[in-house]
Amino acid sequence: MSAFPEGGTVALTAGDPGLAGVMVGLGWTVEPGVGPLAEPVALAIVCGDDGRALTPEHLVFFNQLTTASPGIAFSPTEGAQRQDAEQIDVDFASVPSDVMRIAFVTYVDPEVRGPGTFAAVRDAYIRVARPDGTELVRFDAPPAQPETAKAVLFGELFRDADGWAFRALGRGYENGLAGVGAEFGLDV
């Protein structure tokens, strides 16, 4: 296991050619407070070689577990005892060749009663593990401006030569999910 700095990359399959897939876990804690709490939601965006979603529907999250592209699936955690708040499974062999990048974003649900920012979100992270749970890499991803960040791009898997690699990002979006949708071409 190794911690990564923002912008750091690690080759996953180059060092482990037998790695058939990974589990990407995302987690956080929310400071308790009076009134409605921030509710982070993780999603993965399935992108082509232009860095944008293959179609506006190419994302997975708790209410859309798969897309038309196989090999990427949200794993429901409701009722399960897991280390992570949310988990997304990637089966490298099943991912179509037109998928060049899988971006992992967490947004704070834009519910009208708020709060809609990361101000009360602590210990945010993304980690990549083997299917058996063995951790390969972990990135602690607090946004630089949590009081204004409404969504954060935690990291991405991307094709690297004939295999896959991971890049830690930690980029905040003050315009939240709408900004993420505009950048990646999603219909959200």
Binding site: F61, N63, Q64, P110, E111, V112, L177
Partner: peptide, 8 residues
């Protein structure tokens, strides 16, 4: 599925 699950 997105309209059914995001925000209010």
């Amino acid at each position: 599925a997105r309209q059914s699950a995001i925000g209010s």
